[in-house]
Design a binder for these strands. Structure first.
Length: 323
DNA sequence: TAGGCCATCTGGTCCT
DNA sequence: AGGACCAGATGGCCTA
């Protein structure tokens, strides 16, 4: 299972962790006390403690069994071990926080259906690859190829989730046993879901209404006009139970780029998306062999409200303005 | 119940 | 010496 199912994890886990840690601290205190009292117990007596309890007469805890050493651990080493455990826990929490930040900037983000760690990393890698390919090509990408790259190597549940995020029919992006994403639809255009009440030429958000986008998780961007601001209207699927989180980082550019985000300030720090690729030495060669195709109209014919579009548009802006 | 995912503990290694 | 990092082991939780 690659997509972590809906669990009220956030709060519950914190609470559980806190309980665990409290228990651990208590156990540690007890261990310390016990060690102090028992430091001079002979090895033979210690061996008699073996059973369903650990060395410290406590219910068996997680982790590998302690290696027997000739001497009982000193109080000092126990304290150091405990401190090391705390640091390690903190380090892992930091790592998880960073991973959560990464989840929020890859194309598919949902608070209720979190991607697993490994799938988050895979999707992020694919996303970077897809964007760099787009940048290298210097042209608007073929959506299908873009999505196929995004889903490459992902599990089927994650592929479904990504396809769902992109408003695509996931059945058309089957992942084979080699992790390759295969298109099985009749045509790229058939693979697309059309928005209710709209057609290809009338993207959602052109209805004229202007809603407060800050209250909605989705942002829109039109490829019909390369650099016009993204649409402010919410997606018809904004209320989807699968995607109640923020899908894409709010982004705006009017002449110059400015990144705006509702999230805490860690996001967007140094957000020079794809800039490093602009001067990549292999750009020309990459462009020549780019996997992405340009539509006959010379522009991206789809209208999707996905982060990928924002990123592609941003990249296209950079490319076309020689930034 | 098996398997996936995860948090935690632990000891080893490397670096400052 | 002490901290950061890593990987192995273990057990809990959840879902199919």
């Amino acid at each position: 299972m690659s997509v972590i199912p809906q669990r009220e994890r956030e709060g519950e886990e914190r609470e559980r962790d806190q309980r665990k840690q409290t228990a651990q601290v208590s156990a540690f205190s007890f261990n310390l006390w016990f060690a102090t009292e028992e430091d001079d117990i002979s090895d033979r007596e210690e061996d008699e403690r073996e059973g369903d309890q650990d060395d410290d007469m406590l219910p068996k805890k997680r982790g590998p069994r302690k290696k027997r050493s000739g001497k009982p651990e000193s109080d000092r080493s126990k304290v150091r071990r405990h401190e090391a455990n705390t640091r390690e826990r903190s380090r892992m929490h930091g790592l998880n926080d960073a991973l959560e930040s990464l989840r929020k900037v890859v194309p598919c983000y949902s608070k209720t259906q979190k991607l697993s760690k490994i799938e988050t990393l895979r999707l992020a890698k694919n996303y970077i690859w897809a964007l760099s390919e787009t940048l290298s090509a210097g042209k608007r990408p073929d959506l299908l190829a873009f999505v196929q790259t995004l889903c490459k190597g992902l599990s089927q549940p994650t592929t479904n989730l990504v396809a769902g995020c992109l408003q695509l029919n996931a059945r058309n992006f089957l992942t084979d046993h080699n992790g390759e994403v295969m298109f099985s639809g009749r045509s790229p255009y058939d693979a697309m879901y059309s928005y209710p009440g709209s057609d290809v030429n009338t993207p959602p958000g052109h209805s004229g209404s202007t809603l407060d986008s800050s209250a909605k998780p989705f942002r829109h961007y039109s490829y019909n006009s390369a650099y016009e601001p993204y649409y402010e209207n919410p997606s018809p699927e904004a209320g989807s139970p699968h995607f109640d989180g923020q899908l894409s980082p709010p982004m705006n550019f009017k002449g110059i780029f400015s990144l705006k985000h509702d999230d805490p300030p860690d996001y967007g720090k140094g957000s020079h998306y794809g800039m490093r690729y602009c001067s990549a030495p292999g750009r020309a060669a990459l462009a020549h062999n780019s996997m992405y195709r340009v539509s006959p109209e010379g522009r991206f014919p789809y209208d999707l409200h996905v982060r990928s579009q924002l990123m592609v548009s941003l990249i296209m802006f950079l490319v076309e303005n020689h930034i």
